[in-house]
Write a protein that binds this DNA or RNA. Structure first.
Lengths: 230, 230
DNA sequence: CATTGTGAACTCATTCACAGCG
DNA sequence: CGCTGTGAATGAGTTCACAATG
């Protein structure tokens, strides 16, 4: 499908964002949208929108814009999210437990079909969602049986690499990693990292450095007061 | 502190990752580390490590490497994470609830000091962590009283913009947004987005497109079988 | 004639390659 | 001699500006 060979990863990220905005536009009754408007909604440049789409084909009508429904369908096909994907959640602590039921997953066709943990007091019990919590030893077997396609790691950092190895062994070649560790996998396996504290660190850095000037016009700011203490 | 003016955002992200690896190295008893080794651990190029650090000063010893403890301290100071930061969690559903107690936050100096929701059945109750759940109407007041510095949005998408506006009004100028919406804030406010489904979409795209070739050597793959059905 | 699609210009980020130094 | 620090070279991604067109 890609017309051109080399597609920036950022483009894929934005396609996903466009898709969601298009859903909202459709819901609000819009039939067409210009790259200008879509760009505004997604807080990007309008040339960016056109170029991103341009990697995959010509989806617009000159002088008019893009068909909201049609463009959505095109993007969903490009992203391969026009069907369901089966997730296997590994690590049923607070976070894993919350994610299993999380509306954002199910609403977009990501079905959690299996849950694993290694804590004896959890294994065999049912998660509130109705899903049975399995022993992680059964991962390989369950992956095949239930057709798990994507592994989601929500264990502590210390267990993450071990879990990744188990997933690989079970031929799960796509992993979403919520643990704060860079897991090491062979080239055939794809990993996306979601690391909260890295994001917080970045936020704090910007807050502390870049935001300085902006605070000038605010009479009383914690930062300013702290700064004076030096 | 920055020696140079323009620092890539990706550099900040990596500093956070270096910091975590340095903690592990210290724990394992290492006193010094080379850019080569640190780079390997973080899965980046060693020149990248040196350049990233180079933006902020000279922290190494030629012919030897970097002092594990010292470099950690330097990075923590650069990132401004050598102190605690107070978080206010808005939206105490499954996810918000899980995050309040999440070890990754507390272990790195991010203290959740306030929790807000608008559901009458939650307000006034205590979260398992011991934290009182407050009415979101009290946000402004509580932010000042408890010195909330960073707002964490874990509401559904539909409420996210409203919450962001409230945070702004309360002079919370740094937001970590877990809702799948691009919230709109003035320039003085910093936002980082953590959007699970976008990450999943990216993962699925890569899986479906790039991973193709890699699967060739695996005798039986779901994708291959699906493909044959066409 | 408004809006798309796109080469060319530009900005930003990574990697190379080696001089500088402990 | 080994490893850091960094200018120069390369590569990637974004924005501009305008020709193409429904």
């Amino acid at each position: 499908m890609p017309k051109s060979g080399k597609i920036p990863k950022a483009t894929i990220t934005r396609l996903s964002i466009y898709d969601r905005q298009l859903e909202l536009l459709e819901f609000d009754g819009y039939r067409v949208v210009s790259s200008e408007k879509l760009a505004w909604l997604c807080q990007v440049n309008s040339a960016q929108v056109r170029k991103d789409l341009g990697y995959f084909g010509e989806f617009g009508i000159r002088g008019v814009g893009y068909d909201v429904i049609d463009l959505q369908a095109q993007i969903k096909e490009i992203l391969a999210i026009n069907r369901n994907w089966n997730l296997g959640m590994v690590g049923i602590g607070k976070l894993g437990s919350a994610l299993i039921q999380h509306h954002n997953f199910s609403a977009r066709g990501f079905k959690c079909v299996a849950a694993f943990d290694n804590a004896p007091d959890k294994i065999g019990k049912r998660h509130p969602s109705g899903l049975m919590i399995r022993n992680i030893d059964e991962l390989r077997e369950a992956v095949r049986e239930l057709d798990v396609e994507i592994g989601v790691i929500t264990t502590p950092a210390s267990a993450a690499q071990r879990v990744a190895d188990l997933l690989l062994e079970a031929h799960v070649n796509a992993i979403l990693n919520f643990s704060p560790t860079r897991i090491r996998v062979p080239e055939c396996c794809l990993v996306e990292h979601i690391d909260f504290t890295v994001m917080l660190d970045v936020l704090v850095y910007k807050f502390h450095h870049e935001a300085r000037g902006m605070l000038a016009d605010r009479a009383m700011s914690r930062i300013a007061i702290e700064e004076q203490a030096h």
